[in-house]
Structures are given as structure tokens and as C-alpha cells.
Nucleic acid binder design. Structure first.
Lengths: 119, 119
DNA sequence: CTGCATCCCTTTAGATACTG
DNA sequence: CAGTATCTAAAGGGATGCAG
């Protein structure tokens, strides 16, 4: 039901998913990447979730899956032109995070401490 | 537990939440905004969720809440300097969405159709 | 190596009604 | 006007084990 309130809304629907931005960003840096490598690069993600998100990205035409039909299996993932342009739009977020990482870590630590209670 | 794999990772933790980017972006455009106005601007969000996300943004020092202690109540929300800089980093995503909205709407429509099955 | 299936749990979000 | 409270639904995510 296309009825985006604004461009940001449209974009957000594509990158909603815990690991999607990370996947896009990683692929943008490294070119075609094999499944296993991706899996290791995106720490802490399970097979199920990674595959799931890759499929959604593929359905959204942001990522291209290439199956070389070899044995043992070899598959790699790369960005489509659309995916690549989106990844570019992610760059400022990455930059922001890098520049403000200390600040972010600080507020994050505070949040966690009151979450667990003062003690 | 600060241990961000990269800047993007750090940023994502702050803007994870269905409406947060939209809230930040709206505040960036409009300056201090009263609760009711925000509520109407961010379509389809419930009071509960909106308040919840605003509180988290406030805890993360991205948004500032001002209570004028009047009756009837008057409260407004605005961006902190940190929040403002983050909102700036969101601009390219918005631009991307606007530029590619037709494309996004198309892939989205396709997804929805096969989701509901052929027939 | 790549990836699917299953089961389960937590988080997130939404509806509704109510209060100072 | 600006929220709170409560309940429920759904999505997202994770562990494990199996398969081609």
C-alpha cells in the first residue's frame, strides 16, 4: 500500500530489520561477498535471520544473489545499483556514529545502568 | 555494553524504533513541537508508542522535553544539538526515498502481491 | 558450504479506556 | 492537552538440528 508520508518513510520500510543497514553497508565496502564471509562479518547474527534478511533485500531489489551452482556450494551477494545508491545514503549515519561514538557509548551506559536499577 | 562494530552500528542503536527517525526528522524541520502536533504529524502512531519513543530519545539525549507547567498542560519537544546533528545525517535517506519512491512503491507492491498468494 | 525447518521467547507495537 | 494503564497481538529474533 504505497502511501508514504515522505521519502524517509519510504526508505525506512526497506531498511527496517536489525541487520539490513549493516548488510548493505558491508556489501558496499567489499563488493561481492560469499555467504560465510558475510556471516562472519556481521557478528552475532544467526543463519536464519541473516538468510531471512538477505531474502527480503533481494525481494526489494537491493541485493543480488549469485549461485555458482558448484559443489561444494558457492553463493555470493552483491548490491544492485539501487542497493548501492541506498548504501551511499547510509554513509552519513556511519560517519555520525563514528564521530559521536564516545557520546553514544556514554548515554548508552547510563541507560543500561538505570535499567538494571541503582542497587 | 559499548562495543560497536562500527559507527553505523552505534547510530542504529539510537534510531532503532519504528517511529524514531520520523520523529527526529520532523523535529528537525519544525523546531519545538507540541505533543499533540507531533502526534498528528506522525500518522498512525498511538499515544503509548509515541510517548515511549520520545522518552527513549530523551534518555538518549537526542530530544529535549519542555514542560511549561501550565493548565491546560503544555509540553513541547525539540532536538538537542546531538539530535540535530543526527537528524542531518538522516537527510540523505529522505532524499534517497524521495528520488526512488516510484521504484520503492513498485517493489513493495510486488512483495505484497506474492505475500497474499497468486490466485 | 549454504541454507531451511522447527520451536520458543522477547521485544515491539497497537487498541482502548482512563486521569490530572 | 498530555499523558498512563492494561491487555493483547504480532513481529522479530535466536538456538538447534538437519539437508543438499
Amino acid at each position: 500500500m504505497p502511501g508514504f508520508t515522505c521519502g524517509l518513510d519510504a526508505t525506512l520500510r526497506l531498511i527496517a530489520g536489525k541487520w539490513k543497514p549493516l548488510i548493505l553497508y558491508f556489501l558496499a565496502q567489499g563488493g561481492p561477498t560469499r555467504y560465510g564471509e558475510l556471516r562472519r562479518a556481521i557478528r552475532d547474527v544467526s543463519d536464519k535471520v541473516l538468510i531471512q534478511q538477505l531474502k527480503e533485500l533481494e525481494a526489494d531489489e537491493l541485493v543480488k544473489r549469485t549461485d555458482y551452482k558448484e559443489v561444494p556450494p558457492r553463493v555470493d551477494y552483491s548490491l544492485t545499483p539501487l542497493g548501492h545508491s541506498l548504501a551511499q545514503a547510509l554513509v552519513p549515519l556511519c560517519t555520525w556514529g563514528t564521530e559521536n561514538m564516545a557520546e553514544v557509548a556514554r548515554v548508552y551506559a547510563e541507560r543500561d545502568s538505570w535499567k538494571r536499577g541503582p542497587a
